[in-house]
């Protein structure tokens, strides 16, 4: 029997995470954790080598001001394949990964060979992580085998790079679809052989479709990850992306991960935020918590 999802209690549970009160020490620790989980992202047609370089600089040195405790660096910088080389060079030795979107991101509406080629090129350019999109057209048409086979082929083309599978939940619309697509993606990516913890992530969105990540949608995906772990002992990672703009929202996600999957997942190894503007709001909160007053927006670099 396919697992089904009922919206009433799902949304009630998702809302309950936002009611946790995160203050003082807990807030500071949580915010630093959030920073370390961010995939700092730029995915625009007008992206330039310069913009990626300054993003990489920010990825390593998040804040120019003085803070007693040094800040962690973000988890990864996420760019288009054509800019992987630039990012790779800028981040050398920093510990920050380079993630590249591929498979004809964001629509995936290209022949499979083109999409596989896309992945291979990004990997050979040095990408540590590949963020692929699933074939939503095939999924919504009920051609699940095709979706699954394609994911498996992409996984096989990743080499040592880790894989994040974007479901684009905004186009799948229903929670049932999200759950089914999560199971399908996890199964496809783990079918070829044993994988290690965090080698495969499922990810909500490209950021190009609204709604992107929401608490209930992410909860459905976390439950799929939990069921897979209970059945196999393998830990799949999770990446909500798009729409998470504030520190407060990000803390709600941490609460949800903690209570749904456990402390084990509270690590950039298994949980990421795909976001472009989140880092600055988190920095603002950290500075406020440290100095007692809010800094101005221009105190932080945009990229």
């Amino acid at each position: 029997m396919l697992p089904s999802v009922d919206s009433v209690m799902l949304e009630q549970r998702a809302q309950s995470f936002a009611k946790r009160s995160i203050k003082n020490e807990s807030k500071m620790q949580g915010l630093r954790l959030v920073l370390s989980m961010i995939d700092l992202t730029t995915l625009e047609g007008k992206d330039s080598a310069e913009k990626v370089k300054s993003l990489c600089k920010k990825a390593v040195h998040l804040y120019e001001g003085e803070l007693a405790e040094p800040l962690p660096h973000v988890a990864a910088v996420c760019v288009y394949p054509s800019l992987v080389k630039v990012a790779k060079k800028a981040l050398e030795g920093s510990g920050v990964n380079v993630a590249s979107v591929a498979t004809g991101f964001p629509s995936g509406q290209y022949p499979i060979d083109v999409r596989i080629g896309d992945v291979k090129k990004a990997v050979s350019a040095g990408a540590d992580e590949i963020d692929m999109v699933i074939n939503r057209g095939a999924f919504l048409a009920g051609n699940y085998k095709k979706v699954k086979d394609e994911i498996a082929r992409v996984k096989n083309s990743c080499g040592n790079a880790h894989l994040k599978i974007i479901l684009e939940t905004g186009e799948l619309e229903t929670y049932d679809h999200v759950r089914f697509a999560s199971d399908l993606a996890i199964e496809a990516a783990t079918e070829a052989g044993k994988i290690s913890d965090g080698e495969v992530f499922i990810k909500t969105s490209t950021g190009k479709v609204s709604p992107a990540a929401t608490l209930p949608v992410t909860l459905v995906m976390l439950e799929a990850i939990r069921d897979f772990y209970d059945a196999t002992g393998v830990r799949i990672g999770m990446k909500p992306a798009g729409g998470i703009k504030t520190a407060k929202q990000a803390l709600h996600y941490l609460v949800m991960v903690k209570e749904t999957l456990g402390d084990e997942w509270l690590s950039p190894h298994l949980f990421r935020f795909g976001a472009s503007s989140l880092a600055n709001d988190v920095l603002r909160q950290i500075v406020k918590q440290t100095t007692g007053h809010y800094p101005a927006g221009y105190d932080f670099s945009e990229a």
Binding site: Q29, G30, R32, L33, S36, H73, A76, G95, N97, P268
Partner: peptide, 11 residues
């Protein structure tokens, strides 16, 4: 994978 969490005990 990325490092950089300064958290020793679970959050």
């Amino acid at each position: 994978m990325a490092e950089g969490t300064n958290t020793q005990s679970p959050w």
